[in-house]
């Protein structure tokens, strides 16, 4: 079964989901390239919620050397991580 031509690329869907998740949790409109920790939007403790969200929403497991704060610093970085953990995807 082929996807409809207007379907978003998988990484776009991930980005959209993460932006919505962050907006819900921080009640702030977040840009995909903003440093979540550096901007003070969330504390570093929030990184655990990001890990859990990535694992449950996208069916990936984040472990070993991927457990670096830099992988969760921006929505762009998280999208790239999910894409890679899914076996490259189209990214």
């Amino acid at each position: 079964m082929s996807a409809p031509v207007h379907a978003p690329r998988p990484d776009e869907a991930v980005t959209r989901d993460l932006l919505a998740f962050l907006q819900r949790r921080t009640r702030t409109q977040v840009a995909a390239d903003v440093d979540l920790f550096g901007s003070g939007l969330v504390s570093s403790m929030f990184a655990l919620e990001l890990v859990v969200h990535l694992e449950t929403a996208f069916g990936v497991e984040v472990c070993g050397p991927d457990l670096r704060l830099d992988n969760f610093r921006t929505v762009e970085a998280m999208t790239a991580l999910v894409s890679r953990l899914r076996g490259g995807g189209d990214g």
Binding site: S44, M45, A47, L48, V51, V52, V62, C63, G64, P65, L67, R68, L69, F72
Partner: peptide, 18 residues
Amino acid sequence: AGQLKLATMLGPSGGRAG
């Protein structure tokens, strides 16, 4: 399990990954 991941991410003091 979650806290072990957080400990690994937030510095060398908690987990010892690597």
